[in-house]
Simulated scan of single mutants.
Amino acid sequence: MTMSESKFGRLLMLKIALAGVVLACFVSAMTLHSLNRKNPAIFKAIHLIVFTCIVAIVVLAKAMFYA
């Protein structure tokens, strides 16, 4: 049985994917900052994406107790 066959495994893989999105947002924000392309609209969008992903990770962590 592989990890993706169980409900717990699917939730874990989704959490890992969301963490990857957060990491990609962080890297892109730092890259934009270092290139002096500080656009407030882009940084606001990045913050919204990261906030949504973090909330989803917390909800998935709670859901994993019942999986």
Score class of each variant (00 low, 15 high):
I49G: 00
K44S: 04
L48W: 08
G9N: 09
I49L: 05
S34P: 01
L11C: 04
T31V: 15
C25N: 12
Y66R: 12
T31C: 06
E5M: 08
L35W: 14
A45H: 08
S34L: 14
T31F: 09
A19P: 04
A24Q: 10
R37Y: 08
H47W: 07
F51R: 02
A67P: 01
S6N: 10
L32P: 01
E5Y: 11
G9F: 12
V27M: 11
L11Y: 05
L12T: 04
L23H: 10
A67R: 02
A67H: 02
F8H: 07
L32Q: 07
A17L: 13
S4C: 04
A24D: 15
A17C: 12
L32S: 02
A63F: 00
I57E: 06
V27N: 09
F8K: 14
K38Y: 05
R37Q: 08
V58N: 01
I57S: 03
V58P: 02
S34I: 13
N36E: 11
A29T: 09
P40Y: 03
R10V: 14
S4D: 13
T31S: 11
V58L: 03
V21L: 08
M30G: 02
S28F: 14
I42F: 15
S28G: 09
T52W: 11
N39F: 07
A24S: 15
S4Q: 14
L12E: 03
N39Q: 06
A56W: 01
V55A: 03
V22H: 03
